[in-house]
Structures are given as structure tokens and as C-alpha cells.
Computed example of a mutant assay.
Amino acid sequence: MADDQQLWSYAEVAAHLGISVGAARNRRNRGTLPAPDDTSIPDRPRWKPSTFRDWKPIGQGHRSDLRTRTATDTSS
């Protein structure tokens, strides 16, 4: 199945983010997850994997001011 046809439930989203299913549900309720791509089934939102490809979580626990270390950073 192509990436655009596959849809993730809370379980796949949680596994991708490394959090519990309950935490994924809480994040959606707080509005800190991307909008679902499919809401045709009540109480069962689903997302395309591509929705999370470039998405970065914001809020508690995510430091957007940090950068990855490069080879020049480690030489000092």
C-alpha cells in the first residue's frame, strides 16, 4: 500500500512519536498534534504518515532552541 493510501490510528502515531496511545490522545485533545487527514469515523481520527514526516512537536519536552552537534562543535 502506498504511503498516501495508508492511514495511521492513534497506535501508529504513538509508536512513531515514542509515546503511549493515551499521550497521543491527550496531545490531540490539547491541539498539539497535526489535524487528522481522515475523520470519517467518529472518535477514530487517522493520519497519513506523510503528515508527520516534517512535523515537529512543540510544547513541554521539546527544545526548539537546541541544535545538533556538528564535527566543528566537537573539535574544541
Rank of each mutant, 00 (worst) to 15 (best):
66 L>N: 05
37 D>W: 11
23 A>Y: 02
19 I>T: 08
53 R>E: 12
75 S>C: 08
18 G>N: 00
23 A>E: 10
29 N>P: 02
58 I>F: 04
75 S>W: 00
43 D>M: 14
52 F>W: 04
35 A>C: 06
62 H>T: 07
41 I>C: 08
73 D>E: 01
44 R>M: 13
38 D>Y: 02
26 N>L: 09
32 T>E: 03
38 D>P: 02
49 P>V: 08
15 A>M: 10
12 E>S: 01
5 Q>N: 14
44 R>V: 12
38 D>I: 07
10 Y>W: 03
32 T>F: 00
34 P>M: 05
45 P>L: 07
12 E>I: 03
51 T>S: 12
29 N>D: 12
56 K>C: 01
51 T>A: 09
74 T>A: 12
67 R>C: 05
73 D>K: 07
21 V>P: 04
6 Q>K: 04
9 S>L: 06
46 R>G: 09
52 F>H: 05
73 D>F: 05
33 L>H: 02
20 S>I: 05
11 A>Q: 13
43 D>K: 15
71 A>E: 13
45 P>H: 02
21 V>T: 03
20 S>L: 06
13 V>W: 11
8 W>Q: 01
4 D>S: 15
29 N>C: 11
38 D>C: 11
64 S>T: 15
37 D>A: 00
24 A>R: 01
19 I>S: 11
55 W>H: 01
36 P>M: 06
34 P>C: 04
38 D>W: 07
56 K>F: 07
52 F>M: 05
48 K>R: 15
29 N>L: 12
56 K>I: 14
53 R>V: 02
71 A>L: 15
17 L>V: 06
2 A>R: 15
62 H>E: 04
2 A>K: 15
1 M>I: 09
45 P>C: 09
18 G>S: 01
64 S>F: 14
35 A>W: 05
76 S>F: 13
6 Q>Y: 12
33 L>G: 00
68 T>W: 09
63 R>H: 14
27 R>S: 07
19 I>N: 10
15 A>L: 01
39 T>Q: 13
32 T>G: 03
44 R>A: 13
74 T>G: 09
55 W>P: 02
59 G>A: 09
39 T>C: 12
15 A>Y: 03
11 A>K: 10
1 M>H: 03
39 T>F: 01
3 D>E: 15
57 P>Q: 10
70 T>L: 09
46 R>P: 05
9 S>T: 07
14 A>I: 07
66 L>T: 13
24 A>P: 08
52 F>C: 09
19 I>V: 12
76 S>R: 12
37 D>P: 00
1 M>N: 00
69 R>I: 05
48 K>E: 01
70 T>W: 10
60 Q>I: 06
26 N>F: 03
23 A>K: 10
47 W>S: 00
38 D>N: 13
67 R>D: 06
29 N>Y: 14
